[in-house]
Computed example of a mutant assay.
Amino acid sequence: MQPKIQQTINFIRNYYQTEDFIPLHAPVFNGNEKAYLNECIDSTFVSSVGKFVDEFELKLAEYIGVKKAVVCVNGTNAIHLCLKLVGVEAMDEVITQPLTFIATTNAITYANAIPVFVDVDKDSMGLSPKSMLDFLKRNTEIKNKTCYNKNTGRRIKACLPMHTFGHACRIDEIKQICDDYHIELVEDAAEAMGSKYKGQHLGSFGKLGAISFNGNKIMTTGGGGVIVTNDEALAKQAKHISTQAKTPHTWEYHHDEIGYNYRMPNLNAALGLAQLEQLDQFLESKRQLAKEYKTFFETHNIKTFEERTDEQSNYWLNAVILESLEERNLFLKEMNAAGVMTRPIWQLMTRLTMFQDCPKTSLKNAEYLEERVVNIPSSVK
C-alpha cells in the first residue's frame, strides 16, 4: 500500500475515532426524531395527510427563502414533476450535464423528453454556461419565442443543471442564457440543501427546483424530496398532481387530469422536520471536516474540491482530484479494502446505452473529472 493512502486511512479513522467500517455518508439522529415520529404514530396520520407535512413544507420554504415548498416521495419524482410543470412534453429536448447521478436524466425520460448533454466546468463540476451558450449559438434558432434545435427540429424546452456534491454551478449565468433563449430553468439541487450562491439558496434561481432527502443526504426523511418555487400557482398545481390530481370533496372521488402518487407521508415529514432543526449544526460540522481534509491532503500534494468565491457549499460529499485514472483506481481499491468507503464520481451518462445517442457537445472537462474524482467519507461527526 502506498504510504499516502495508508496515512489517509489513518487520518480518517482518527477523525471518526473508529476501527470499524466507515461509510461514505451516514445519517445522524440527535434531535427530536423519535419524539416527532411517536407523535405522528399516536395521531394515526401516518400517510400523506398530517400536521408534519404542512409544518415541514412551511419551514423548508422559510429556510430556503422561497414562497412555497411541496414535499414528495423522493428527489427524482420532484424533478419529474418540475419538468412537467414547466411544460416539457414528449420529444422536447432538455439541456443537462453528462456528469451527474442518473436520476437527473431518468427524470427527463419520465417526461418522454430527450436529454442534450453539454460539458461541465472543472471548478464547479456543474453545467458550463460557456459550453451551453456555444451549443445554442451553433445549433439553435428562435421562432415565436421558442428555441428549436436546427439539427433535430425538436423544441428545446428546459435546462436542468445539477449542483454537484452541493457545489454551485454558475447558475446566474445559466439563468441569463435561459432567459435569452426562452428556455425554462429547473434546478436539480438534489445534493445542495443548505448550499448558497451569492447569498441565495440553490434551487431558488430557476422557476422550480428539486432537493433530495434520501438517507445519504445532508439531512434525510428516509426517502423524500421537495419542489421549491416562488410561483404560487405552480406550487398549487404541484401539490394537486402529486396527489393523484384528486379534486377536493368530502366523499366523492373525482380526478381532473393524470396525476401521480408522489406525496410525502407524514411519517417522513416528521423525521425531516427534526432533521431541519439540526441542519445548521450539520453544515458547520461538514465545513470543518472539509477544512481538515484540505489541510491534510495539501501535505500529500492531493487536491481537494473546494467552494469558489461567492459560494457557500454544504460540502455534502468531500472529493479529492487524483492525477490519473490509474491513481484513482488504486486509491479506490486500497481504501475500500481497508474498510474506508470511497466512491468514484459517476460514469458519464453518455456512456450508458440508454443515452449514448443523445445530442452532446465536446465533453472534455467531464471526461477529465470522470477519471480523477473520488468521494471520501463525509458523515457529520
Rank of each mutant, 00 (worst) to 15 (best):
L363K: 15
N266Y: 11
D231Q: 02
F296G: 00
F52S: 13
D357C: 10
L99Y: 14
N375F: 14
V228D: 04
P115D: 09
M341V: 11
R155E: 04
T295L: 09
G50T: 02
S128N: 03
I183F: 15
N230C: 01
D54M: 02
D54W: 06
K143W: 15
C178H: 09
F282E: 04
F101N: 14
T304S: 00
M1H: 12
A190C: 12
G209M: 03
M341Q: 15
Q288N: 13
V120F: 13
N216Q: 09
L99D: 13
M91S: 15
K4W: 11
K217V: 13
F29Y: 06
G225H: 08
M91D: 14
E93D: 07
P129S: 07
N318T: 01
N329V: 15
R287Y: 09
C147K: 09
V380T: 05
F213K: 03
D42A: 15
K59I: 00
G75E: 01
T18G: 14
K68N: 05
E191V: 11
M162S: 09
N268Q: 05
L267M: 10
N216R: 12
L133A: 08
T76V: 11
E326M: 09
K217M: 15
H255Q: 06
T229Y: 10
K145N: 08
Q237L: 14
I177A: 01
A338Y: 14
G206N: 14
A103W: 13
F29I: 12
G50V: 01
T295A: 11
T247C: 14
K145A: 14
V66G: 06
Q237C: 03
K51L: 03
S43L: 00
I258Y: 11
G50A: 00
H254E: 12
R170D: 14
C169G: 12
T350P: 09
A210K: 03
K145H: 09
V380I: 08
S43E: 12
A238D: 00
A366T: 00
D119N: 05
V94H: 04
F52T: 02
G259K: 00
P98E: 04
V49D: 10
K333D: 08
P377K: 02
C72F: 14
A69V: 00
Y315C: 10
Y181K: 00
A192C: 13
N365H: 14
L273T: 06
T299V: 11
S124H: 04
V53H: 13
V373I: 03
N365W: 15
A235Q: 03
T353D: 08
I102Q: 06
N139C: 05
I321W: 01
L81E: 12
A26N: 04
S313N: 02
V46G: 08
N266D: 04
P248Y: 15
E367M: 08
G31W: 00
E33T: 15
Q312S: 12
E370M: 09
I376K: 02
K198S: 11
T243K: 00
V94L: 05
K130V: 01
V70M: 12
V94R: 11
T104Y: 09
H254L: 05
K34T: 14
Q281E: 07
E57W: 10
S379Q: 01
K364H: 12
Y15F: 10
